[in-house]
């Protein structure tokens, strides 16, 4: 196994795990505000998909400075969603401005040095991680079901396939972002190797993890997480060995991850849905409440035992 491939596997494993587990951790702890009326439905999937398809095309034709402005706007709103309920507004704006500003400065000044490149990737990765966690939670807490996520992943698989093999812009896109501030991906550079995983993929994995957990509980997670690791990180990494056309040494390696993950996501959903009906947010709240109730009762039980012993 080449060091390039090994490095990529490590980056992808860290990226996908951090996003999936981070999103789950957030989902269990933070309640996002939702509008008085409205549930995330399949039509919203198409709208998000349209954005995911249209934006990269826009990225290709926009001048650098406009593209950066666009990314600043996107990440500002995404980070705002993520941290609104966690950090008081006055600090939040300061923090967002600081992180994004630093990211831009590093991208323009320090990329020549290895340390600079690594700092650049570190900052990018943190921003992309937090953004995908927040947005995924916004959708799932807004009513997006695992059914919708699976559909989303399958559609993205087609999209990835088309843009990889029929209209090959994926690589051009990766090149376009190379060295630009706010590259929407998690990645790293080490010993001349460079690997990253895009925000679209990260968002799908975050969505898949929490939608599975919300809809099917612990079992949902134990199915979803391995599927993400195998089909979202490992298989796309080994794919270049099989599909030679995908590799381009030297510059970052691009992987059409959804081609593997989409069908796997659909099969996992269908399998889980056969075992039990998918839970709504309401049923999830109820399950949470009864779990808390049980925890309290257990604690009380332990407390009275202690008391008996003490007496």
């Amino acid at each position: 196994m080449s060091s390039e491939l090994l490095f990529e596997i490590v980056v992808l494993l860290i990226g996908t795990s951090a996003t999936s587990l981070g999103a789950l951790w957030y989902f269990q702890r933070v309640r996002l505000e939702r509008p008085p009326i409205g549930v995330f439905n399949s039509r919203d999937v198409f709208i998000v998909l349209t954005f995911i398809i249209a934006l990269p095309l826009l990225y290709l034709i926009l001048p650098g400075i406009v593209l950066t402005g666009f990314l600043v706007l996107t990440f500002t709103s995404a980070l705002y969603v993520t941290f609104r309920g966690v950090i008081p507004p006055k600090y939040l704006w300061f923090l967002i401005a600081g992180v994004l500003g630093l990211n831009i400065i590093v991208a323009y000044t320090l990329l020549g040095a290895t340390f600079g490149l690594q700092l650049y990737w570190l900052l990018n990765s943190v921003v992309a991680l937090c953004a995908s966690i927040g947005i995924a939670n916004l959708y799932v807490q807004g009513g997006m079901r695992m059914r919708n996520v699976a559909m989303f992943a399958v559609l993205l698989a087609f999209y990835d396939g088309i843009f990889e093999f029929i209209i090959p812009i994926t690589q051009r896109l990766a090149d376009r972002f190379e060295g630009m501030p706010l590259d929407p991906s998690i990645g790293f550079a080490w010993g001349g190797n460079n690997a990253n995983i895009g925000l679209g993929d990260l968002l799908i994995y975050a969505l898949f993890t929490i939608a599975a957990y919300k809809g099917f509980g612990r079992r949902g997670f134990t199915v979803a997480f391995p599927v993400i690791i195998v089909f979202g990180a490992l298989m796309p990494s080994f794919a270049p060995l099989v599909i030679q056309s995908v590799t381009r040494s030297g510059i970052g390696i691009v992987v059409p991850a959804q081609i593997f993950f989409g069908p796997a996501a659909l099969v996992s959903y269908l399998w889980l849905a056969r075992q039990a009906p998918e839970r709504s947010m309401r049923e999830w709240y109820r399950a949470q409440a009864s779990a808390r109730q049980q925890a309290t009762e257990t604690a009380v039980g332990v407390g009275s035992v202690t008391k008996v012993i003490a007496e």
Partner: peptide, 12 residues
């Protein structure tokens, strides 16, 4: 549909 999914309307 909102009530079916969440059991209650959202914030505000």
């Amino acid at each position: 549909k909102t009530l079916e999914e969440f059991g209650e309307p959202g914030d505000d």
